[in-house]
């Protein structure tokens, strides 16, 4: 099993996680994915990639450095993202009852291993 597959596997095992992807943020494209049927990987990659880039610029303008974790919270769930090496970002789509704390820890751990 590759590091990427291991990362996706660990994240998707967290209760409430509906899917995880590795994306190329600048292009907004899927590199690898492990998703439930109702999660559109192409849309997640495009939309999350765009937001991650914009928020990274915002954090750097505020003098906070490069983000290591991002959380977009909606009524019916969240998008979590952890930038890894180069332009790669590990992204998870989670339901409203997910264990966010555990998902965050797994994402941070797994993103550090992305190459």
């Amino acid at each position: 099993m590759t590091e990427t597959q291991t990362a996706l596997d660990r994240v998707t095992r967290v209760p409430g996680v509906r899917g995880a992807l590795v994306i190329a943020a600048a292009d907004g494209l899927v590199v690898a994915e492990q998703l439930m049927e109702d999660v559109d990987g192409q849309a997640v990659a495009a939309l999350a990639g765009s937001l991650v880039l914009r928020l990274a610029r915002t954090a750097e303008s505020a003098g906070l450095g490069r983000p290591r974790f991002l959380h977009l919270r909606g009524d019916a769930g969240s998008v979590l993202a952890a930038p890894g090496a180069d332009d790669l970002v590990l992204v998870a789509v989670v339901g409203p009852d997910a264990n966010l704390g555990l998902a965050r820890l797994e994402l941070l751990e797994a993103a550090g291993r992305l190459a």
Partner: peptide, 12 residues
């Protein structure tokens, strides 16, 4: 995911 409520960004 419905309407958005917040975005949190964690940096060093």
């Amino acid at each position: 995911l419905g309407a958005w409520h917040a975005i949190a960004v964690e940096s060093p």
